Each structure stands twice: as structure tokens, then as C-alpha cells.
Computed example of a mutant assay.
Amino acid sequence: MKILHLPTSVGGNAWGMSQAEKELGLISEVLIVEQNWLKYNCDYNLNLQGISFLQRVKVLYKWFKRANNYDVLHFNYGSSLLDFQKLGLVLLELPFYSKKQKIIFTYNGSDARDVHPIEYWDEIENPKKSLYQKIVKIVKKYKIKKVEKYADHIFALNPDLLYYLPSRATFLPYSISNWNEIKKYSYEIKDKIKIIHSPTSRELKGSDYILKALEKLEKKYDNIEVQIIENIPHKDALTLYQEADLVVDQVLIGWYGGFAVEVMKMGKPVAVNIREKDLKFIPDDMAEDLKKSIINITPFNIEEVLSNYIENNTLLYEKSKKAVEYVEKWHNPRYVAKIVKDIYEK
């Protein structure tokens, strides 16, 4: 069976899944239309940034024809090859793929989620949506409706996305791009507890609330050190993550990202906002294991919760152990690839 993952590298999920599919005996490749600053691996990079629209269409159409050589087309980030959202021309080629091919879609986050998906929005700022944001929401809904028509299966990497996707969509745990390269490090806190925050989007991660809380903690305790990591290549960031004693992911979205999976595999305790009501979408055992493995925070209790762990750092050692056990069980790429392979073969 020959699989092509396309057309983005968001979160490194496609590459991680592709590598695990190969381990299961499948032929699996990753195509991206352009690279981002994180520089995740891929098999084919079309490098379409900076070229004219006509040139772009020519290259994409060539790959559309070539895609017919694959048994499964696994699209990610709610997009396809001929997908020009700003022009209102979306998912153009979906009706024209062979009926013998399996069409799979994986949604990663903001490709399905509302513009402001935040549980606490009414309690913080609750900004009015601009006209542009309202249009984006309409386009997302239209695209999801079109995917529902042509996709054989739909996955969601965040449980809350299932509020926005068709009822037949199912939850799928993250696959990270470099599972075998990330090693567990012996967890040992030295003179200071090093706290790391590494946002890809400060707004969505709630970085303002996190940074204000961390600033207060730095004034309150002399045994902590805070480092913000952003806008650097993924491989460089991974090296810096190794130095963390505690990682703060996000406080608004209600789920964790691929970044959290990476650092948990290293044995780093993670503080993150997990929305209890969304856990109904994931396996019961996974939900129970998650509650034991992470430090659950909200925008309003970051300082209080983290103070408890700073003052009782034996709790951090316990979370370190649980974090590794959790990701080894629920985010092992072979486990995720087997779920996907079963869908491919149905």
C-alpha cells in the first residue's frame, strides 16, 4: 500500500506518522507545498513560496496527476493541493481523484476550530470578531462540508475539534516528527528550577497570562529561572528543551500540542490547560492517565499551582515519571500508525 501525506508539515505530525507507517510495512511519503521556519522533515518540498500564482498552479497540477499513483492520500491541516482559500477556490481537486483511492483528512487545530475557541473568553477580553474573521469562519465551515462529502475518514488531533467536524470524525493522538531521536533524560533538578515556555502563537497559547505569572514567581522565589523559546528551527529548540525542569505549554485552548509530547518524552513535567468536558472524545484510560501525568492550569491559577510544585519539587519528579509513561503508551507512533492503518485497509 502506497500513502502520500500532504500538503503541509504542521506540527511534524505527517512525518512522524509516515515513519511509523514504514515500520508497519507500508510505503509512505510526505509532500509539502512550502517549508516553514520550524523546518520539519519531508520527502518532497515544492518550495512554492515567492512564485507567481500561475507557476504555482502549474506545479500543483503536475503533482495532482502524480498523486493518482498512490493508494491513499492523507491530507492534513484541512487543506489539499489545489486549495486557494484567499480566492474562495478551495479543495478544488477533491472530486477528481480516483474512486479507488482512499481520501483521509486530519485536522490539526485552527483549520477546524472557531477563531476564538477559548473556554475562558467571556472572563478575559472577549473581543468582537472582525469581518475577516467572520469570513474565515464561513470558509472553514464550507471546506469541512466539502471534506465530509469526499473523505473516507476524518481525524482530529485535538478532541475539541470534534465539536466542529462531522459526527463520523474520530480522535487521533499526535505523532511527533522525531520520536526515535528524542531520548529520556535523567530528571534531576539542580540549583534552580528551569521553567520553559515555547509558544508558536502567543495569542493562542495565552502567553500574556503565562509570562505575567512567571514574572511574579521569579520575584517570589530565588530558585527558579525562566526561559522563553520561540522563532527558532525545531532542531535547535529541542536542544534547549533538554535543559528544562518544568515546561508550560498553554492555558487557553484546552489541549496540549506536539511540543508537549516531545518534552514529556524527555521526562519533563508539563503544565497545561486541559478542558475536562472534552475528554469524552478520547479513550477513558487515556483520559485517566493524562490527569495523572500533567499539571492542569488555567489563566487564573498559574501562580498558585506552580508555587505548590516549586515549594514541593518531589511532585515534579513524580510528574516526570508519569509523563514518560503517558507518551510511551498513547503517543507511540506505532500505536498511532496502527489506528490509521486499520482505516486505510477498511
Rank of each mutant, 00 (worst) to 15 (best):
E318F: 11
A151V: 02
K99C: 02
E304N: 14
Y150P: 06
E188L: 05
E262S: 02
V90M: 10
V139K: 14
I310H: 10
F155Q: 01
K134P: 05
E123R: 13
I189Q: 01
Y174W: 15
I339W: 03
N301W: 13
P283Q: 10
A169D: 00
S293R: 04
K265S: 09
E262W: 04
M1R: 08
K216R: 10
E23S: 13
D152I: 03
Y107S: 03
K291Y: 02
E21I: 04
A156H: 04
R113E: 05
G206T: 06
G258H: 03
L131T: 12
V136C: 11
F281Y: 14
K268M: 01
G88F: 12
N76V: 01
N308M: 09
Y344D: 09
F171I: 00
W179V: 05
I253Y: 15
S52E: 09
A20E: 02
L89K: 13
T200D: 02
K219V: 03
Y120L: 07
D43N: 12
V147D: 04
G206M: 02
E188M: 01
L211H: 06
Q133F: 14
K145S: 15
E328T: 04
L81R: 07
Y150S: 02
A14M: 04
N223Y: 12
D249Y: 01
I27T: 15
E325S: 12
I193R: 04
